[in-house]
Structure formats: C-alpha cells, structure tokens
Amino acid sequence: MATDEGWLPALAGGIRLQFEQAQDSWVLLYPEGMARLNPSAAEILKRCDGSLSVKEITAELEIAFSTSNIEDEVQQLTQAAKQRGWLV
C-alpha cells in the first residue's frame, strides 16, 4: 500500500465532522451529503487535524483504546478518505 511518510492528514475544505444526535453517530458532512461513520472511523478522523502523521495517530489510538497493531486499519481508512476528497 502507498504510504505517505510525511503526510499530516487534515479534513479538506468544506468537510465537517460532527456528532449527530438523530443518527446517534459521528458523521462527515460535505456539499449536499453525509457519511455516517462507524466508531473507529470517527476516532481516526477526529485526530486528522493536520498536526499528526498516520503513525502518530495510530500511536495515540493504541494508547487511548489499549490496543495494538492497528496501523494498517488507520492507513487504509485515511487513504480511502483521501481518495474521496475528505482528507488532504
């Protein structure tokens, strides 16, 4: 898989991440549409603020959720979100 070593993922312009009571979940909002996020996608995207690399996001999540070996998952999700224009 392609890896961007120096990439500090951030939400693209016009993309908003917020919690929706009616959906009982975090959602990504973009022009005229919405994607409902599962809890792990939400935790990853919440950390995409342009200050952390994928490795750093992974490390944070592994500590916060007492888990390990999730870098592939973080890598896949951020790449997919980049493909869709949600992350830059």
Binding site: E20, A22, V27, L29, E32, G33, M34
Partner: peptide
C-alpha cells in the same frame, strides 16, 4: 431539532 442536517 427533528434531525435534519443538510440545508439548502
């Protein structure tokens, strides 16, 4: 309040 999200 009903849950609408997108507004045009």
């Amino acid at each position: 309040a009903l849950g609408a999200v997108q507004l045009g």
